[in-house]
């Protein structure tokens, strides 16, 4: 009898169908409300920044993979996610070349030089943002009060964190918490739309794309430390609600710190990571020259991820073996 031509392979012989593409597209869907709100607030400028950022990220990824003679994987959507997240924390008026430089730094230096998706020790979008932020000559483009001076949005055009930094907590009385929560505040294109970011983030948690520990403990860490500062000196420091509802904290908790390649895996690692990000944010806001510290806090904690992956339950080492 003729032998059958069968395929032999190790187990398992089925797959759940989960793909990297799926994860990326879930993140893009989750960011869609914030994108729409950003475009409706800042008009075509916001659309220009978002589109150019995504395009730059994908073009740089394709080019560098061609240069490195690797398979081109822009279709998995991870470059698009990096570009979109980067765009959402920028002001709407930022010029194209700054977007391009940020994406080059993020995709080429922050991601592909380390080996591509999964091998990046830092979130590429944050690397890109940090590179343009510490470029002193470009600070004016990234300072929200200066950059957004020509927009009429119908709400108070003052960056709340800059007010806090310059004038102290006593000057914050004209910021309404409800308005802040509804996104009626100056800030990044999408990052300022707090409630829509929250909805998108909850969607990701529910779909299981990100682990719930990071956002929860990020917000807890922010609230706890800012609460301690606030209790010690209410005139100098703002309260926890203000800190959570301004700047990049919400987008940081759900999107910036949860990049899978640069966040821990084990539960206690996630808790420590989230708390560290939140606490470091408040330290930077209180004591650094920068008005918002979320990105630098996340970058700093990203570097500790290999250590946090070593935190695990002691009982996790299995011992019981069945007989027979």
């Amino acid at each position: 009898m003729k032998a059958l031509d069968l395929i032999v392979s190790p187990s398992p012989h089925i797959h759940s169908g989960a793909k990297m593409t799926g994860i990326s597209y879930h993140i893009l869907i989750a960011l869609l409300p914030a994108v729409i709100v950003g475009i409706s607030t800042y008009g075509l400028d916001a659309l220009r920044v978002i589109c150019s950022s995504i395009a730059c990220a994908m073009v740089f990824e394709a080019l560098i993979q061609k240069l490195f003679k690797k398979p081109i994987t822009i279709s998995d959507g991870s470059a698009a996610v990096t570009g979109l997240i980067l765009a959402l924390i920028l002001p709407a008026s930022v010029p194209f070349y700054i977007v391009a430089v940020a994406n080059f730094a993020g995709i080429v230096i922050g991601k592909q030089c380390f080996g591509g998706l999964g091998a990046n020790p830092l979130n590429p979008a944050l690397v890109g943002w940090a590179v343009i932020r510490i470029t002193k000559a470009w600070a004016g483009y990234l300072d929200f009060d200066l950059a957004l001076v020509n927009y009429d949005t119908g709400f108070l055009m003052q960056y709340p964190l800059a007010v806090l930094k310059a004038q102290g907590a006593s000057a914050l009385s004209h910021f309404d918490m409800i308005d802040l929560f509804l996104g009626k505040q100056t800030g990044g294109i999408g990052a300022a739309a707090i409630v829509w970011i929250l909805i998108g983030g909850l969607y990701l948690v529910v779909r299981g794309v990100i682990r719930w520990e990071i956002p929860l403990f990020f917000l807890l860490g922010t609230a706890a430390l800012s609460g301690i500062f606030w209790l010690t000196d209410q005139a100098a420091y703002a309260g926890p609600m203000f800190h959570i509802l301004t700047g990049n904290v919400m987008i940081g908790a759900f999107f910036l710190s949860t990049d899978s390649g640069s966040s821990p895996v084990n539960r206690w690692g996630l808790v420590v990571y989230g708390l560290g990000c939140g606490a470091m944010t408040i330290f930077l806001r209180a004591w650094s020259d920068y008005s918002d510290g979320v990105v630098f806090a996340c970058l700093l904690m990203n570097l500790f991820v290999p250590l946090m992956d070593k935190i695990k339950d002691k009982q996790k080492v299995p011992e019981v073996r069945s007989l027979g």
Binding site: V101, I109, C113, V131, I132, I134, K136, A137
Partner: peptide
């Protein structure tokens, strides 16, 4: 031209040295 002052800072030194080395 608005200079990319990142390159004049310490991180710019590390990044450019690393890229040249590569």
């Amino acid at each position: 031209f608005r200079p990319f002052t990142f390159m004049a800072e310490a991180p710019g030194a590390f990044v450019s040295l690393g890229l040249l080395l590569g």
